[in-house]
Design a protein around this nucleic acid. Structure first.
Lengths: 143, 143
DNA sequence: TTATAAGTTAACATTTACGTCAACGTAACT
DNA sequence: AGTTACGTTGACGTAAATGTTAACTTATAA
């Protein structure tokens, strides 16, 4: 009978209840257990997961579909780790792992680019700010 | 008869022709001159502008409406600079300037936050990459 | 000069990521 | 035991930002 109800999760994650259910519906968020009466009961992990993916979504500009792709990569790796004995050494698994690695490194490159772009925008903003400041100072001087 | 045609601008900016016309339609991109026959003839400046705003859009997560707001701020400042004699000293202009300044500084703060968030995501990605690498190495060792 | 490629407007379609509302069940409080 | 608050599903609505198609015009080039 333990676990957070959806309203609490909404508050902690900053998402709406609608959005949380929607994420579950599209398979982005794993279905939490239900109470006797059918209420969703979330764990802290669910909350952390939501925080993490909303952050990634904003930072990377990911669509929900892209987000899913990424979570799948993560899961592939977890699966690889846990089912190690059973699946070890299959060529299939190796290919999957290599795909994960490629994708992640691609994303890391994109992040680098993103950092550069942020610097550009920051430069523009700073110059805008300075011009605004200068103009204001001229006002003062004229009084 | 000089100037870039829309297809060229699309290539250089990475946007589609539809999008470029749309941006003009909503007043985000200034209407370029037309050729005799009615073709849009763009300058390099148009291309740069498009690059700049798409960058800002991605980096800041701006909607097109927000983007417009921002361009208006910029224009206000340019206008302030050029029509200096005419409008100088009016209280209205000062208020506008202060609003510009406030908004810009707010955006700069957001950018700082955004940088921190990037670092978080980057950390996640790096750990994902390292786990993938480690798993691959285990494959090699088992051969 | 005539096909073909690229431009134009206008209108309708589509996708994403939710918001909103209805009708109903469950928990909590008094 | 009754009221109020919160939960559930399902269906329909919507805003932003394009995609797509049609019908037509203008450049390009063989």
């Amino acid at each position: 009978m333990t676990g957070l109800k959806i309203d609490e999760v909404a508050k902690q994650s900053g998402l709406t209840k609608r959005t949380i259910r929607y994420y579950e519906q599209i398979g982005l968020l794993s279905s939490p257990p239900r109470s006797e009466g059918g209420f969703r009961l979330y764990s802290e992990e669910h909350v952390n997961f939501l925080k993490k993916i909303t952050n990634a979504k904003e930072v990377m500009g990911f669509s929900l579909a892209e987000l899913q792709e990424f979570i799948k990569l993560n899961d592939t790796l977890e699966l690889q780790r846990h089912d190690y004995r059973q699946v070890k050494g299959t060529e299939l698994q190796r290919e999957k792992l290599e795909k994960v690695l490629d994708t992640v490194e691609e994303q890391l490159k994109l992040l680098e680019q993103k950092k550069k772009n942020i610097l550009k925008v920051e430069g523009d903003l700073v110059s805008l700010r300075d011009r605004a400041k200068a103009a204001l100072i001229r006002f003062e001087e004229e009084k």
